[in-house]
Amino acid sequence: MEAPAAIFYILASIALLSAVMVIWSRNVVHSAIYLVLTFLCVAAVYVLLRAEFVAAVQVLVYAGGIVVLFLFVIMLVNLQDTLGPRVRLHATVSGVVGAAVVGLILYVYSRGPLATERLLSVPPADAAGNLQAIGQALYRDFVLPFEIASILLLVAMIGAIVLARQKY
């Protein structure tokens, strides 16, 4: 096994374990911290897949912004009564549904042309990564979706302020 494949397996197992801990731990703050670990491992996987810009955005937006927002809201709502139990009644049904999702997608993978063990071909590496190419694609080919995304963020910000306001 060559080095980046081994690194991928290590990162993937850490990400999966911490994702399980996100939904397993009783304390919501612990869930948020494990969520940071998951996001950082996924960002490292992006770097392995040669998507450096998305990895940087992932660290900045997810690990830097979204988790801080989660922690902020966890501190705002009262923590001691959020240590409640999970839903015991539906645990079996949920396990069956989750296993069915895994089985269904694995079945589709096994039927598809991806089942052949072809390897990822690595594009020619340049020193600066793919930042320039991403910028040109984002501002030339995808400039209208880019502007729509900015309007979406503005609407989400206004909506969040209106919803979280003290009095309506």
Partner: peptide
């Protein structure tokens, strides 16, 4: 190279963990 099938299985398992979290937890956060 990393085998693409293994990347797909990794994302599938991550998605399944998310599904399980939505289905089993009561806490909205």
């Amino acid at each position: 190279p990393v085998p693409p099938n293994h990347v797909l299985v990794f994302s599938l398992l991550l998605f399944a963990v998310g599904v399980l979290g939505v289905l089993t937890r009561r806490n909205a956060i």
